[in-house]
Write a protein that binds this DNA or RNA. Structure first.
Lengths: 192, 192
DNA sequence: AAAAAATATTGACTTGGGTTAAGATTTTCA
DNA sequence: TGAAAATCTTAACCCAAGTCAATATTTTTT
């Protein structure tokens, strides 16, 4: 049950049996059916989540009611509204499942306790955040430098096999283009 | 000399005299004249920098030789090529000064030693990275949701007073539009 | 298996911002 | 201060992607 998250964490820090016990005792398992909400806009965000299986998306709804996907999360990814989680503010993001999914949540207070008792976890999340920060920088640079076609190809490389699990209109949304445009890009790519 | 960086850090963690001494002993001061490079593309990146005064920009040069600005850094901001710094890879970013600037650098080995000896610094940078991550998420959401005019107004809000210190063509570059377009937007704004 | 819902494609038309080019204005520095 | 460099603005034209609308295809549900 905890093997995925433990081996994920132990890629970065080493844990002894007591630490594993403390950490896993803090985890809450949630099972989501397809299209079920994990975090709803406007609610408080008490958990950050590790995806054991399945796939979710985080998006913001704009003033016209349109969704804008900021992140997909499949197996071994972390997802939450990190701003709301850290600020204890209300969520501006919505997170729901694209497939039936299993996630492990850790509560904010537990996480703070974990940082106090096992400071290595500060290190773990510092490293994860550094990588996440760099990934977002690259996404921005890609949007500044590249055509939509190139960004689509980048997406396929960055998230191998994810495309088969997600409808095209969500990929278009993530890329900031209309589904019609993605359809034209895909057509161009198969013809060439 | 160290008062800015120390009060910046002590917003998040408390340091005693020994810790202050250890930390400041690791800092290297660099003074840059306008247009001087801090990090050049292709070089190794041994430092991350805190800006004491002045203003710098980090950008990537694309295959056509065009620059794309990913970040400005003024007083109390951190800047580096964090990917290259952490991976010990060669820099894909270039960083140079927009104004005469003073920065404090900390070397990678020293930072690792600091983490070992004063784990609170892991906490400090974890918190800073969380905020930086959220800021980049917001920048991406802004680019997905908003018109160029709205993004320009967001930039002015997010970086008050910075606009007066930076040429418009760099702001246009940061926003991913042509200077001509920014000029049109600015004209529209004064007329309305 | 049929109906309903969700997803994907295509075509016609429109438009915001890119491109090119020229000139105006401001800043830098010898 | 004056020349050179850097920066900003305006105009004309063009194109990639948005919009709107219709239809096709796939998936889900009953």
């Amino acid at each position: 049950m905890y093997q995925e998250i433990l081996s994920h964490i132990q890629e970065y820090i080493q844990l002894d049996a007591t630490e594993v016990e403390l950490f896993t005792s803090m985890l809450v398992r949630k099972k989501l059916r397809k299209r079920q909400f994990l975090i709803e806009e406007g609610s408080s965000v008490n958990y950050q989540y590790f995806v054991v299986s399945g796939c979710l998306k985080a998006f913001e709804v704009d003033e016209n009611g349109d969704e804008h996907i900021i992140q997909f999360a499949k197996e071994n990814w972390w997802i939450s509204d990190f701003k709301a989680f850290f600020d204890e503010s209300n969520s501006k993001l919505t997170i729901d499942s694209i497939e039936e999914s299993i996630v492990l949540g850790i509560e904010k207070n537990d996480l703070e306790e974990l940082y106090r008792k096992v400071p290595k976890f500060e290190r773990f999340f510092r490293i994860k955040l550094t990588r996440a920060y760099v990934a977002l920088q690259n996404r921005i640079l890609s949007s500044l430098e590249k055509t939509n076609e190139e960004q689509y190809l980048d997406f396929q490389k960055a998230y191998p096999n994810l495309e088969q699990r997600i409808p095209n209109y969500m990929i278009a949304n993530y890329l900031g283009i209309q589904p019609e445009s993605l359809s034209r890009i895909r057509k161009r790519l198969v013809n060439n």
